[in-house]
Every structure is written in C-alpha cells, then in structure tokens.
C-alpha cells in the first residue's frame, strides 16, 4: 500500500473542496474495492477522503413516486429495505446475488457504481494493462480472456464491469445524482459507466472532483414480473460470467413494457433499447425472448476463451425473461433455476 494522507469530510461541499485540493485524492466509503486495489498497488491515492459519515444514508420517496437512495446506503440495507423489497425486488435480488453478506454490509451504493474491473491483468502490476497503465497494452485480448467482455470492447481493453447492482439499476432506468465543483447534475445510470474506447483508464463519466450523492429509482419498479439471473463458476461468492436483469410489464400474456440488461459481458451494464422495443406488444414466448436476446447481443465478439458467453448470454436472457413472465424470479439462495 502506498503512503497516503487521510481526511474526513464534514459535508459534501467539504468533500468536493478536499478533492479539488488534491488531484491524487480519492473518496472512500465502504472501501471494499478501493482498499483491495490499494493493497495490490493498483490504486495509489495520495489522500483518502473519508465520506462514510456524510448524511447520505436516507431512502426517501420522490415526488413522482420513485425512490431516492443516498449514496452511502450500504448494499445490504438497500436490498433489505421494505420499499425496495416491495417495489424494486429486481434490485434487491441483484444486490443479494453479489459479493458476500459481510461485503454487502460494508459496500455503499455509490461505491458499488465505482467498483473497478476484476480483470486479472488489471490487478497484476507485473503485466501490461491499458486500464491501469495507459499505453502499456492489453494483456487480455490475446491472453486469458474467459471472463472478459463480448460487447462494446475496443482494441485497447476488453474488461468487464463486475457489478450486479448496476445491472438491475440499468434495467430499471435509474438516475445518478452527482455533486461537483460546478454544482449538481443528474445522469442516467446507463450513461454513468462508459465503454473503454481508447481511454479504458476511465470507467465512468464522473468528472474529477465530483461525488455521487444519490441514485434515483423511477416509479416503475416491475415488482411483479422480474428476475435477476446470475451465472458464475460456483454457486455463490463469485463474479458473474453472465448475468441478466429482466423485467416485464404484462397484460395477460402480452408485453406492455420490457427491460433487459446484461452483466459480466461489457465494460458497463449492457442494455439495448432496440431489444426492449422489439418485445413491446409481443406475446411473452420463448421465441420472442430469443429474438430480443439476439438484438441485445448484436455485435457480440468472441475472443479466444470467452466465445461461450455469447450463447450462454442468449440462453440466460431467454430464461430470465421466462422467469419474469411467469412471476417466478430466480432465488439467490435456492440455487435450482426455475
């Protein structure tokens, strides 16, 4: 770990001031990813600004019937909050599919959005990695890439975003509230994370000096027909090879609205409005689900070891939509897949 200074922010404005004062500074809340990466010498902040005590822990109803979730709400508190369980069970399920009970107790909502890739080369300072050390090259493209992205990749990076929570938030159309030196702004979750392009060292569109203050869930929670299906190498406590957040609004067997996002396949939660539009007005059948999956996976590219993800993702999408349609969401504890 490098030698860093420690400051405790007294309020959001103070945190923004402290960030502006030290370009090498980083915010810390739960620390579950940042401390890990600091121990690997991947992250070397000159200063940690402790925001864990800022008053960003409320879950409040918004005027339009949605929910505003403070950036420091721990993942587990969010997953187990009665309003989330009732109105946004897809989000609860996605959170509970990730990490462990201990890590969920620590990790904050804002921190979850900021977590970095699990690419082994990113973690290993002895190997080239454009994300860690821009310009050194991507070791994964011609290396061990079984876990890597099939969508939205670039010639400089094929890393994936490891978050489960973000996949559900993307599907639900969540917004991210941000404060910074030039005031406050709000962006869609789907615009928060970015694709690697030629700047893979940038995971998100959060500006330097900015801080996430809240996420906002729109009123429509798809509480009846949803499923979060996560597929991984063991039955718990592993990152997704592929995950699917699926949500439907049905009238009878007809799809009124559909939401679909993939995790584990790209540098950001992967959502396709085209795929969702194709489902609208259709009957909830495996055929239609398959067509939506094809649209969602349009342009998917296999590398030497991750080709299986394309077909796996396709099947997982169909299955998650079936689970959603039949109102039998995947349990995160009972491992049999309905």
């Amino acid at each position: 770990m490098n030698n860093f200074q420690y400051s405790r922010a007294s309020d959001v404005a103070d945190a923004i001031r402290l960030l502006a004062a030290d370009p090498g500074a980083k915010l810390i809340a739960g620390g579950t990813n940042l401390i890990d990466l600091m121990k690997e010498n991947v992250e070397r902040p000159s200063r940690l600004i402790d925001i864990s005590r800022l008053p960003l822990r409320d879950i409040e109803e918004t005027a339009d019937g949605g929910l505003r979730v403070g950036a420091l709400v721990p993942n587990s508190d969010l997953a187990y909050h009665p309003l989330i369980e009732q109105r946004y069970p897809l989000l609860a399920s996605a959170i509970l599919a990730g990490a462990s009970a201990q890590l969920r107790n620590m990790a904050s909502v804002g921190g979850n959005l900021m977590q970095r890739t699990r690419c082994a080369y990113f973690y290993d300072t002895a190997t080239p990695c454009n994300k860690r050390s821009p310009g050194t090259g991507c070791s994964a493209i011609d290396g061990l890439n079984r876990n890597h992205a099939i969508l939205g990749t670039s010639t400089s990076c094929i890393a994936t975003n490891p978050s489960d929570m973000s996949v559900a938030l993307a599907a639900l159309g969540a917004l991210v509230h941000i404060a910074g030196p030039s005031g406050q702004r709000t962006i869609a979750l789907t615009d928060f994370h970015r694709l690697p392009e030629d700047k893979p060292h940038l995971d998100t569109n959060l500006g330097s000096g900015e801080i996430i203050t809240a996420i906002e869930l729109p009123p429509h929670g798809f509480a009846r027909n949803y499923s979060y299906l996560k597929i991984r190498d063991r039955l718990s406590y592993a990152f997704a090879l592929v995950s699917v957040a699926a949500a439907l609004e049905l009238e009878g067997n007809a799809i009124v609205e559909a939401r679909l996002a993939l995790g584990g396949v790209a540098h950001k939660p992967w959502r396709s409005l085209e795929a969702e539009a194709a489902l609208r007005g259709q009957a909830a059948t495996p055929d239609h689900f398959g067509r939506a999956a094809d649209l969602l996976l349009q342009g998917a590219t296999a590398r030497s070891h991750n080709g299986f993800k394309i077909e796996l993702a396709r099947r997982a999408v169909v299955r998650a939509l079936m689970q959603a349609a039949s109102a039998t969401p995947q349990s995160q504890a009972h491992k049999k897949i309905a």
Partner: peptide, 13 residues
Amino acid sequence: GRRVNSCLTLAVM
C-alpha cells in the same frame, strides 16, 4: 453489531 471484513476496513475509519 454488523458483520464486516476487518481486512478491508481502515482502523481510522
């Protein structure tokens, strides 16, 4: 009262 991983927790926090 909450279970956490103490290895990822800075004492100062």
